[in-house]
Amino acid sequence: MSEAVKVSDVGKRYGSFELQGIDFSVRQGFITGLIGPNGSGKSTLIRMMMQMVRPDSGSIELFGHRLAGESAQLRERIGYVSDENYFYDHLTIKRMKKILSPFYGSWDEEKFRGYLERFELSENKKIKELSKGMKMKFSLAVALSHSADLLIMDEPTAGLDPVFRRELLDLLTEEIQDDTRSILFSSHITNDLDRIADYIVFVNKGRLVFDETKDDVLERHVLVKGGKELLDDDVRGLFTGIRETDVGFEGLVSDRAAAQRAFGDLALLERPSLEEIVYFTSKGAAAYV
């Protein structure tokens, strides 16, 4: 399987924050969700793919080309949606488009107009007059209008209402009907875009937790709920993260079979949601309420 993005052993230090030994890929033809709590390094990784940030160590490949000083042309093949409004606030949509469209050889004006209409954006509006959701839609319209092979979206659902979030799912699945295209999105709120994600890359505190198909992730993990008398030091060691209260505990075990052996019928074993996996993993064993 070919890879749209390959991140190999990437490290980066920013003051006290450190990304270390990050390895993952964005497979061609699939949707990959980059998830993790705020401040876990998702945006930095995405900015590295866009060559905004240089890794201190390791390497990044886009479409099989290792990123180096003069890899700028590769960005023509990327539709990028930033997590902030990075357009010029005082310009109208029309003028902003006029500035950026010539940089993309395959800019499709008709497609762009189609998206403006679909997203109900008026091109005479100034960008600073747009709501957060509308800015995101404009950014998306730009990203989708130059036949990009890879769509990279940094927290795209922030500021979007639930109705449009659902519409976004349709839009994105439409994009990958053609199995040569790939999508990477990051999100700290899961149970959102990850409905349609094929692969999940989970980073936490600058480290990679896993890069697996979503189905494997969901099947491998198990949420255990039970009475506190079941917990001893050995049992606690099984948990990736655990939350203990006065009336019992719930915790995440990343090996379903091991949990079944340990608890049998003594505890409640449930399928966790991705959100629960993120929650328990980032809280770790110290989670205590």
Binding site: M52, G69, A72, L74, S82, N85, Y86
Partner: peptide
């Protein structure tokens, strides 16, 4: 006009090398 970090990122996101 380009001093805002966000706008700097816009420029960097374009398919144009830093040197250019």
């Amino acid at each position: 006009l380009e001093i805002q970090p966000a706008n700097q990122r816009f420029i960097a996101s374009l398919p144009v090398s830093r040197r250019r």
